[in-house]
Every structure is written in C-alpha cells, then in structure tokens.
Computed example of a mutant assay.
Amino acid sequence: MHETDMTKALIMTVQDWFDQQTVKPKITKIHLLVGQFTCVEPMSLQFAFEVQTKQTFLEGVELVIKDVPLVAYCHPCQAEYRPEIGSQYSCPTCRSPMEDIRSGRELKIDRIEHHQCTPV
C-alpha cells in the first residue's frame, strides 16, 4: 500500500511548512490534487492520513482530495483525449500511442486552509 508512504511524505511536507511559521496556525483542511494516472486510491490515502495523524498536530484536519483526470494530447490529430485507464491508452481516432500526458500524474498539495491562533 504505497498510500501509507505517500501519507508520510505529505505529513513531513506539512510539518516542514508548519515549523517555518513564526505563529503556529491552526490547520483545518489540506487540499490535494491527485491524478488518475498515479494509481493512488483516494479512500486508502484518506484512511492512511487519518491513522497516521492521530495524536499529532494534524489530528482532525480534513483531507480534501480532488481527482485530476488523465488527459493526453495526440500530435498527429492535434487533439486532446481522455485515455481509458487500464484498457486503452492510444488515441481513439488514429491509434497513435500515448506520448504527451497533459494531466493525470499530479500528486501535490494544492493549498492548506488555516487560521492564526491568537495568543492567550
């Protein structure tokens, strides 16, 4: 389950960002972009995040996952198309092999929602 390793990397990235903040913010949501061609299972990623953030500064933070479709570009046809993952990757019009992926490989933090904690 590579989602576990990806979640660890996500937590480390957010931790690095958090540590750089002079006033520690209260994180409420982490928005991720996850491409369909990454073979990441969003439900598994969600589960791994919940398990790995228990009793940490990220406990209770909502992980919002946006699926990014696989979109390829066919140079002979000069057109974009959406390959069928697992079955048909070539251009549906001319059958040229998929060479130019325009989206679908993303796996990144889009944004972190937070608010500044006020000192007591």
Rank of each mutant, 00 (worst) to 15 (best):
F47W: 15
Q52E: 10
F49S: 03
G60W: 00
P97K: 07
Q36A: 14
C74V: 05
Q55A: 15
G35C: 04
C94I: 08
T93G: 00
P83K: 13
T56M: 07
G86N: 11
P97H: 09
P83Q: 09
C94E: 09
L58E: 07
Y81D: 06
E59T: 01
C94G: 06
V40I: 15
V40W: 05
P83L: 11
K66H: 12
E84A: 15
Q78T: 12
P42W: 04
E59P: 05
C91Q: 04
L32K: 00
E59R: 01
V51D: 07
G60K: 02
V40K: 05
F57D: 10
Q36H: 10
I85Q: 06
T38A: 07
Q46G: 00
K66E: 14
E99C: 12
L70W: 08
I65Y: 01
Q36C: 04
A72G: 13
P69V: 09
G60F: 02
S96W: 13
P92Y: 03
E84W: 10
G35I: 03
K66R: 15
L45Q: 01
P83N: 11
Y81S: 06
F49Q: 05
A79S: 13
P92S: 03
T53S: 01
F49I: 04
F57P: 03
L45A: 05
F49P: 04
V61R: 03
T56L: 07
E50I: 04
L32D: 00
P69M: 10
M98G: 05
Q46K: 09
S87F: 14
S96Q: 15
T53F: 00
P42F: 04
P97G: 07
H75E: 14
L70G: 04
V51G: 02
P83H: 11
F49K: 03
L70T: 13
T93K: 14
F37N: 12
V71P: 03
Q55H: 13
D100L: 13
A79P: 00
E59A: 05
L33A: 11
K54P: 02
V71A: 08
P97M: 07
L58H: 08
D67Q: 15
I85D: 05
E50H: 09
S44Q: 08
Q52I: 01
K54W: 04
V68W: 06
V40D: 02
D67F: 03
I65F: 01
L63S: 02
G35M: 03
F37D: 09
L63Y: 01
P97D: 13
R82N: 12
G86Q: 12
A72Y: 05
S87D: 11
E80V: 06
F57C: 06
P42Y: 05
S44T: 02
Y81W: 11
V61F: 03
M98L: 15
